[in-house]
Amino acid sequence: MAEKPKVATTSMAGCFGCHMSILDIDERILKLIDLVDFDKSPIDDIKEFTGRCAVGLLEGGCCNDENVKTLKDFREHCDILIAVGDCATMGGIPALRNNMSVKECLDEAYSTDNRKGPAVHNPDNIIPNDPELPLLLDKVYPVQHVVKIDYFLPGCPAPADTIWQSLVALLTDEPVELPYELIKYD
């Protein structure tokens, strides 16, 4: 039997909702397993690419340097990259911070000065800065602003049927043509 094509997935600045949507293809996941092997993905907890992948599914936009690293890594290892969901395609909810500076954003989240931070007990106004922590970008970037993307599946989350139909089309060399009901931005 020929080796099955591989699929990798990642969630960057997203909420994992689009990964839930991947799982939401229900029993079709068994068919999917027949069609593909999963490589690097939170679904199987494989942390690093084990080889070349046919398809990479990207959830979330790019909000920090680690996301950019991941995204470039995906571009390098995957033949086809699919932006899945509104965060990947347009920044989504995390991009609401795009109109404030990084400093304002961190203060809003952590500082208790002037009651900026709404829910954090942080009397010393410490902004977390462990070397392990990724550094924020100046704004949240949709993935196509950072690397070239081949397909876009909008939605919040992208509907399970949209993901399923697109994947099957790609894996069977059919054109990705989504019917009216499967292009939705919410």
Partner: peptide
């Protein structure tokens, strides 16, 4: 893109 966060 990293300049502001690196400075902070």
């Amino acid at each position: 893109a990293l300049r502001p966060a690196e400075a902070i």
